[in-house]
């Protein structure tokens, strides 16, 4: 086993060169280069973290703005709807008023027409009665030779006509 057989001859050289080269590794690579590599990693990590934070902030900002926009939008919509409702109600009331006025006019005309009709009817009825009374007087005089007064003829005709 050379590790033991040669130890007396080689231990000093082994230790010496190991210390030299491991020292080089430690001071040049471990102390000199590794911190720089790690600094790069840390810098990248912080860069990523700050980028993420910025993205998050931008997203929050966008959310806030969207919320505000939505609110404004809702308000606008409500206002528009109120306007529409108002106009509708006004139009409704207007047309109702007009309708009512027209109805009134029509009713009035109807009433007038009715009274006119009634008056005409009464007049016609009166004429018919007087004609009938005269006719009755005439008929009675001719058939029975009895002279009937106009008044009684009239009343008799009236009675008969109401019985119709």
């Amino acid at each position: 086993m050379p590790q033991i057989a040669q130890i007396a001859d080689t231990y000093s050289s082994q230790i010496f060169w190991l210390l030299i080269f491991f020292g080089l590794v430690f001071f040049v690579i471990g102390r000199g280069m590794v911190p720089k590599v790690m600094a790069t990693v840390a810098q990248r990590d912080s860069q990523i973290a700050s980028d993420l934070a910025a993205a998050q902030a931008a997203r929050d900002q966008a959310d806030v703005e969207e919320e505000a926009w939505r609110k404004r939008e809702n308000e606008n919509r409500a206002a528009a709807q109120a306007l529409v409702g108002d106009a509708k109600a006004k139009a409704n009331a207007d047309s109702e008023k007009k309708l009512a006025a027209a109805q009134k006019r029509i009713d009035k005309k109807l009433d007038e027409a009715e009274t006119r009709i009634n008056a005409s009817r009464d007049e016609a009825m009166g004429e018919i009665q007087s004609v009938a009374a005269e006719a009755a007087q005439d008929i009675v005089q001719r058939l029975a030779g009895v002279k009937v007064t106009a008044a009684s003829a009239k009343s008799a005709v009236k009675e008969a006509m109401t019985n119709v």
Binding site: Q14, W17, I20
Partner: peptide, 29 residues
């Protein structure tokens, strides 16, 4: 104390150089 440069020392040196080259490749930052 004997400090002869042996094959062992040579490979320590080669290890150092290989490691140096490896880490240097990661120093582009």
């Amino acid at each position: 104390y004997n400090i002869a440069f042996t094959n062992s020392a040579l490979w320590m040196g080669i290890t150092f150089v290989a490691l140096l080259v490896f880490v240097l490749g990661g120093m582009k930052r």
